[in-house]
């Protein structure tokens, strides 16, 4: 009993459910300090950073999407350009082939024409030379044969007209003889 009473007496001033006034003040002070430093200064800073982070992440996604779209566009453009270039190249090639063929054809034609011309010229020259040869031969043979005939028959055939008639006759004879000979041979 004595002990219990003395315990109560000792604790009368310190009932744990009765707050000490100075501790109330200190509690308010401590909480105020934390509220100001953590609550008013630091938490808003962090919240700002968190908002920025969210934005950065979302913005990053949007930017990545945009970049991908752009890359796709560039790729499409590049592919289209490549296609156009290929078409152009094949066109060029075809044109070049056509041109080449044309050039070859022209060259061929020209060469043929040249060849024909050369052949014709040669023929003409041969013909002319042959005529010339024939003429001189005819004249020479005429005089020679007349001379020969004059000598053989002893008569002088001075009359020119008669002379040439005789020669012509003689030549025709010669020619016909040569032709029959050819026919026999062939």
């Amino acid at each position: 009993m004595i002990r219990a009473a003395s315990v109560l007496a000792a604790e009368e001033a310190n009932n744990p459910l009765i707050p000490h006034p100075f501790e109330l003040v200190v509690g308010i002070f401590s909480f105020a300090v934390v509220m100001i430093v953590l609550g008013r200064i630091l938490v808003p800073r962090l919240q700002k950073t968190l908002a920025e982070r969210t934005e950065a992440i979302e913005g990053g996604l949007v930017r990545a999407e945009e970049a991908q779209k752009e890359a796709q566009q560039v790729l499409d453009q590049y592919k289209a350009q490549q296609k156009a270039a290929a078409v152009e190249a094949s066109n060029e090639r075809r044109k070049a082939e056509e041109q080449g063929a044309q050039i070859i054809a022209e060259a061929k034609e020209k060469a043929q024409a040249e060849a024909r011309k050369i052949v014709e010229d040669a023929k003409k020259q041969i013909e002319a030379e042959r005529q010339q040869a024939l003429q001189s031969l005819r004249a020479e043979i005429g005089t020679m044969s007349v001379e020969l005939a004059g000598r053989v028959v002893g008569e002088s055939l001075e009359d020119g007209a008669r002379q040439s008639r005789v020669v012509d006759r003689f030549l025709e004879e010669l020619e016909s003889r040569a032709r029959t000979q050819e026919q026999v041979q062939s």
């Binding site: 744990p16 009765i18 707050p19 000490h20 006034p21 109330l24 200190v26 509690g27 401590s30 909480f31």
Partner: peptide, 8 residues
């Protein structure tokens, strides 16, 4: 000490 929780 009850004063501290009480204040809060």
């Amino acid at each position: 000490h009850i004063a501290f929780p009480a204040v809060l």
